[in-house]
Design a protein around this nucleic acid. Structure first.
Lengths: 252, 252
DNA sequence: CGCATGCTTGACTGAACTCAAAGTCCGTGG
DNA sequence: CCACGGACTTTGAGTTCAGTCAAGCATGCG
């Protein structure tokens, strides 16, 4: 029942995102503003480049927690490398997987409102995050800066994506939801600069099922069905998209 | 490929430069900043009250559209009175009810990112909205102001609520989802200053069903079941909560 | 008054969940 | 090295739950 991320699967997945051994030190300085903008795919322009901006770099091993529910808000994070999952735990103990953040995604924006994080983020693979400390975001004495504006732009983008994603999962048929999930994953890998036709899922069937509100068996069966139809090729977590068109048709 | 992440490289911060000439029919001036803060239940404090802030007031009759999908972003709205529904229509024509905004809720924040609204908002009852024009939000020459901060705070709050709501509907049983929906409505009426035990739903069974991803018949049956059990009393859209405790139990 | 819309309820069917068993991969320890 | 164990996955069989189709009733509006 408890969902423990184990190293084996993560290690396998890491081959495509291989990162040489590095010290996993949390608070490394990092002030490449333009890289952050590039990661976020921010294509507008900001007036003045803020030289004094100070980001932090944070590395996580698979299974580690990036943010905990209830933890005091201390900044936003941009994923530089790796995959994570965002979960919310209810009073009754039920856990729900909200999203699977990956490269270029923003984390922690749900902490702005109440000044504490309301969801939990755990690393599915080894991760490399860039932290935008809250001190850089909210400067009580002075006025709002480029970083704050960028952050809010990115937050708005995340909402849109989320809305769109949730909305997508409102198909009646479970197979359609799984197909859509795969299509969205494919598109995400594409925008991240990886192959959209061949990728490795970083999450378990259980996580996918939880996210889509179906059981893990149903996810597995849907994968098998799509495989037998020649639309995709599944081998454990390795996915090949053979016909994106056919996959799209399954969404309806 | 329609991807939310690829952006037409139009203006991002330059919203106000393109401040549209379109003056809507019901553009009444309205500059009570404190009322807006109160409506939003903003509990922090902002440094200086912006005297020059100019809001607009907009009234809608039931059935009218507040915002249309694809329409150019021209500001945020705060609901002062009435109830609405937010919907998204997909390429295949399927429509999904995202939320039911009411007094104190924020509308239009999904337009910040791409500079156009991505969902449609229609009035379920006669409505009274306060508009925060984009000219007040984004001031290209000067720095970020209180209104912008307030707006972003409110946006963050909306995300949190939405996340929480979506997360809530991840119960397996449809009766549980309906029960949860009623409980959440009750709490919302309460925070708005109305009775949590007796209220009138502004939306149809179909809308509720669409929102919860069940059929309208299922919603109706769930209402009837809860009624027969003495947990609630239903008479068309008039709802009385007889036992909040029992209602909560049904969520699991 | 007649019509449209919304709501309720019933019977049937089919899709997804539950339970169960077996197979795969991988890391660990003998 | 190989056997073991644990986590993950696949597949099957039976059951339950919610969707579909259909009929009937209530309400409101022109």
């Amino acid at each position: 029942m408890m969902n423990v991320q184990t190293l084996p699967s993560a290690a396998r997945w890491d081959h495509s995102f291989h990162q040489p051994a590095l010290k996993l030190e949390s608070d490394e300085r990092w002030s490449d503003f333009s890289e952050v903008l590039s990661l976020l795919r921010f294509d507008g322009h900001l007036q003045g480049l803020n030289d004094t901006s100070l980001f932090r770099r944070r590395r996580l091993k698979a299974g580690q927690t990036a943010l905990g529910m209830g933890q005091v808000f201390d900044g936003l994070y941009v994923v530089r490398l790796g995959a994570l999952k965002t979960t919310m735990t209810h009073v009754d103990g039920a856990e729900h997987v909200l999203a699977f953040p990956m490269k270029g995604d923003l984390l922690g924006f749900d902490g702005v409102c109440k000044n504490k994080y309301l969801s939990e983020v755990t690393a599915l693979t080894d991760c490399d995050l860039i932290k935008i400390p809250s001190s850089e975001l909210f400067s009580p004495g002075r006025s709002c800066n480029d970083i704050e504006r960028m952050a809010y732009w990115a937050i708005s983008r995340e909402i849109v994506q989320e809305q769109s994603a949730y909305s997508s999962y409102h198909s009646t048929k479970s197979e359609a939801r799984v197909a859509r999930f795969l299509r969205i994953q494919s598109e995400r890998f594409n925008t991240m600069g990886y192959s959209p036709n061949r990728f490795t899922l970083p999450m378990t069937r259980r996580d996918i099922g939880n996210h889509l509100n179906v059981t893990l068996e149903t996810v597995s069966r849907a994968f098998s069905a799509l495989d037998h139809l020649g639309i995709i090729a599944v081998e454990r977590r390795e996915i090949k998209i053979l016909s994106l068109e056919a996959l799209r048709k399954f969404e309806h």
